[in-house]
């Protein structure tokens, strides 16, 4: 068991090093950081929401958008680089199982996504905290209700985002394990992310009483089970600005659902990769 963990951690370590040195990662990190910072200057365009909520929503949206692009492209790229450059031949000829190899690739990629999410969350935290302090002073002067900002809520949100990107990366890895080309993986992976974002529609349609045919209901049921609901992770503003409005049970159910899909996609990826000819 120790040997397996050791080999997996070495694959993850090298994958992480390879990913972190890519310009693509640095580019997306800088772009996302710029978006988070710019959210402060856009606070007057709040469309009727509270200022902090707009700032948080704007930054969290950027984090998910660029995080998804990073999870999609980087997972596919790191996987296919090993196949196309034939480094996989060298590695898999060693006493390393394909599951260990795949798991190592996933963990390395997930670690990079962790750096991305937690760096941006830290930056977002600094911005929200400093603006909250200004608003608290302003509220005291004007007699208005002071805004709330929860650091632990932000930490929970960052963990949830990390989990969501982990689900995306596992989904892309599953596609990579059966796909022959990088382009196919990216296209199918992008479609899967969009399907995940729209999965709640299938859930809602299934829950609503309707006279839909049995076939439609069956398709809706399958869609709502097979495709992960990526929208359920969108509770950032509530966690950060109004943590009492959401129960711990609800947060845990999101975590467990994310973990279930993550493990399921990795298991399917492993099964598919075992049969792949390299």
């Amino acid at each position: 068991m120790n040997a397996r963990l050791n080999r997996t951690s070495w694959i993850a370590r090298i994958t992480f090093l390879e990913a972190i040195r890519q310009r693509f990662f640095a580019f997306l990190l800088v772009l996302s950081a710029a978006m988070v910072v710019s959210s402060v200057s856009l606070r007057f365009m709040d469309f009727g929401h509270s200022e902090l909520k707009f700032v948080a929503d704007f930054a969290f949206g950027g984090m998910f958008l660029f995080g998804s692009v990073l999870a999609l492209v980087m997972t596919a790229q790191l996987f296919f680089a090993e196949i196309e450059n034939r480094t996989a031949l060298t590695l898999l000829a060693k006493p390393l199982s394909r599951t260990e190899f795949l798991l190592g690739k996933f963990l390395g990629t997930w670690a990079v996504l962790g750096v991305f999410v937690f760096s941006l969350a830290f930056l977002q935290g600094v911005i929200l905290w400093s603006r909250t302090q200004e608003l608290i002073v302003l509220a005291a002067e004007t007699g208005r209700v002071a805004p709330d900002f929860s650091v632990s809520g932000l930490a929970s949100f960052a963990v949830l985002q990390w989990l969501r990107l982990g689900v995306v990366a596992a989904m892309v890895l599953m596609v990579s394990a059966v796909a022959r080309t990088f382009l196919f993986t990216v296209i199918v992976g992008a479609m899967a992310i969009v399907a995940g974002q729209l999965q709640w529609l299938a859930q809602e349609a299934l829950l609503k009483p309707s006279d839909a045919s049995m076939v439609t209901k069956t398709l809706l049921w399958i869609s709502s089970r097979v495709i992960p609901n990526l929208q359920q992770f969108n509770i950032g503003d509530t966690l950060v600005l109004d943590p009492t409005a959401i129960s711990g049970t609800a947060v845990w159910s999101v975590v467990l659902s994310g973990l279930f899909y993550l493990v399921a996609f990795l298991a399917l990826a492993s099964l598919a990769f075992r049969r792949r000819e390299i």
């Binding site: 070495w10 090093l17 390879e18 450059n85 034939r86 480094t87 060298t90 006493p95 390393l96």
Partner: peptide, 30 residues
């Protein structure tokens, strides 16, 4: 596999590693 070593045709390795790091990496995997 524990008892086998393999050098593939036209080998390609991670360019950012040094030669020593690569061999250490492979030693740990083996």
């Amino acid at each position: 596999r524990q008892r086998t070593g393999f050098l593939p045709e036209a080998p390609y390795f991670h360019k950012f590693l040094t030669g020593r790091e690569l061999v250490q990496y492979c030693a740990r995997l083996s």
